[in-house]
């Protein structure tokens, strides 16, 4: 355990140097979120109305959540890149902790998510987004968002180690993230959907996270009837994320132990 504590900061430092040296990466967590808020918030927010709520406020939780999902691709890309260029071989030949590499990678990508959240919160505020439940619930919402981001990173690590090719990783990440985003309540209320589709969307873990954020931000339309996850979004999103982590983290660490470049 103490070995992880020594190795993770060293590797974390490596990733932070990368962040400074790849301008695109920094743009990804600053300009991209701004674009998301402006495009979805202003364009969609001006065109659509949701009964009982300001659509612009309603959208913000969805935009935050969508940004967290991009962590899957980021981490998968980083891990596949390390496999490709031999860094994984080098690390595995060193007397270091086996879990440290993935832990440092996911924590670095979590740091990117923090930067992205902060940027989006500021820009959201500028276009009129407000929270209505006070500071602590709002911070709780960000906690749930970052937990989702971290979960997505671990799934990304598993994807990167299994797919191995940095080129293929992007398409795989898109195939996973795309339905998670759009088969959810991130951008639309689910009330008007046909029954079966509504059930799918309501049980999508992403919907629980979005609903939890709306509740904690106070950006929610009146809670109507709905499936269990929609009724208890905070508890469900926490439990689902932790359950996914409990499965994915051991799988990713196992995949790393067996991984060999080429």
């Amino acid at each position: 355990m103490t070995e992880i504590l020594k190795d993770v900061p060293v590797l974390f430092g490596r990733h932070m140097k990368h962040l400074v040296r790849i301008p695109e990466k920094l743009l990804g967590v600053t300009v991209m979120p701004v674009a998301y808020v402006v495009v979805f918030g202003i364009l969609f927010g001006s065109a659509i109305t949701v009964p009982g709520s300001d659509y612009r406020e309603y959208l913000m939780a969805g935009i935050f959540t969508q940004m967290m999902l991009t962590n899957l691709g980021n981490t998968a890309q980083g891990v596949a890149g390390d496999l490709r260029n031999g860094a994984v071989d080098r690390f595995r030949s060193l007397p270091m902790s086996r879990s440290a590499v993935l832990l440092a990678r996911t924590l670095s990508d979590l740091t990117l998510a923090v930067i992205a959240c902060a940027t989006m919160a500021v820009v959201g505020h500028l276009i009129g987004w407000r929270t209505h439940e006070g500071l602590l619930p709002a911070l709780g919402a960000f906690g749930i968002l970052l937990l989702l981001g971290w979960t997505m990173s671990w799934i990304g690590a598993l994807v990167g180690l299994s797919v191995r090719s940095p080129e293929a990783v992007n398409s795989i990440a898109f195939i996973i993230v795309m339905p998670l985003t759009f088969l959810s309540n991130a951008f639309i209320p689910l009330d008007g959907l046909p029954g079966w589709l509504r059930a799918v969307c309501e049980w999508n873990p992403i919907s629980a996270v979005v609903a939890a954020c709306r509740e904690l931000f106070g950006n929610t339309a009146a809670v109507g009837e709905g499936a269990f996850p929609v009724q208890h979004p905070v508890a469900v999103s926490l439990l689902l994320n932790l359950a996914i982590l409990a499965v994915v983290v051991p799988l990713a660490v196992r995949a790393y132990r067996r991984a060999t470049s080429r």
Binding site: D7, I22, A87, F91, P95
Partner: peptide, 25 residues
């Protein structure tokens, strides 16, 4: 171990690469 392909971090400097490996040792 040195593999067939130099396993180095392209974005770090030579000194930082060595320092990283030394620290991980």
């Amino acid at each position: 171990l040195t593999g067939q392909y130099a396993a180095l971090d392209e974005l770090l400097t030579g000194r930082e690469n060595l320092h990283l490996v030394g620290r991980l040792h």
